[in-house]
């Protein structure tokens, strides 16, 4: 793909955002052109969501997670950014929120969206948890997960990631669960720590909105797009063909493919 046909992905940076660089690197590797922009520039009109083909909200601690993780960034999304966002959604722009970005999308009401309600709250064990988790993609018809056939393996790093649905059945029947925490062999984690690291009901690690355009997930696929990031890349059996297992590049490539057609 030549440089000038790369779709641009907007990566807004709020005070306290981090992992924006990894997210940019992942999209770069997936064939997109990342643009990291401080929130203030969006607010002052120096840049706009609608000037881009994708929107990606990174992890971190926006506004220090004051008043709850992602709450104040969520407030930005549904106040002064609301019009831009609506335009973007009307144009079917794929949107991804990872970790803090997911939390913000939930606070903004974009996820789970539709009639469903949900919250991301304190981990069941009451503390921050950083560890690698296995993710089983679910069939949702989302532009982000359509092409994922294999498990993903990537780290979580959060203190408030326990997914609680207002109506779990509604999410299931709407086919909105995008990823579930799993054991290494792909079987459901069944709520068991550490496979399900935060006690999320139904092992839910990520959800999409009813349109499938908006994906939110707590784990960090952007931290596993290169082979050497894989903790087992040199262990026995990590041959050229199998060592890539669990790599998450395909997720970003799916989103990018959706806008290049």
């Amino acid at each position: 793909m030549s440089q000038n046909t790369r779709p641009t992905v907007l990566i807004p940076i709020a005070p306290g955002t981090n992992r924006n660089q990894e997210l940019a690197d992942a999209f770069q590797a997936a064939g997109a052109e990342p643009r990291q922009v401080p929130l203030s520039a969006l607010r002052e009109g120096d840049a706009s969501i609608t000037d881009h083909q994708l929107l990606a909200l990174p992890g971190g601690f926006s506004y220090g997670d004051s008043l709850g993780a992602g709450r104040l960034l969520g407030l930005d999304l549904r106040s002064w950014m609301a019009d831009q966002l609506q335009h973007a959604l009307d144009r079917e722009m794929p949107i991804i929120g990872i970790c803090n970005g997911f939390q913000a999308l939930v606070h903004a009401g974009l996820l789970p969206g539709g009639d469903a309600d949900a919250a991301l709250t304190d981990n069941a064990r009451g503390r921050f948890e950083c560890r690698w988790v296995h993710l089983a993609p679910q069939s949702t018809g989302s532009v982000w997960t359509n092409d994922l056939n294999e498990q993903l393996w990537c780290p979580v790093a959060h203190g408030e990631g326990r997914f609680v649905a207002g109506d779990a059945d509604l999410l299931e029947s709407n086919n909105q669960v995008a990823f579930r925490y799993a054991e290494a062999d792909g079987s459901p984690a069944g709520g068991t720590y550490p496979f399900n690291p935060n006690g999320s009901k139904g092992d839910v690690a990520g959800v999409v909105d009813p349109s499938g355009l908006v994906l939110g997930m707590m784990p960090h696929p952007e931290d596993h797009v290169r082979i050497h990031q894989n903790p087992h890349w040199k262990r026995r059996g990590a041959t050229a063909s199998s060592a890539g297992i669990g790599g998450c590049l395909a997720l970003f490539e799916s989103g990018v493919a959706a806008v290049v057609g």
């Binding site: 082979i227 890349w233 050229a240 790599g247 590049l249």
Partner: peptide, 18 residues
């Protein structure tokens, strides 16, 4: 740690490509 910014973001998919 491999310092961020010292390797290009083009991914190496397999072991042999490192």
């Amino acid at each position: 740690v491999v310092p961020q910014g010292t390797v290009s973001p083009v991914p190496a998919v397999t072991n042999d490509e490192v």
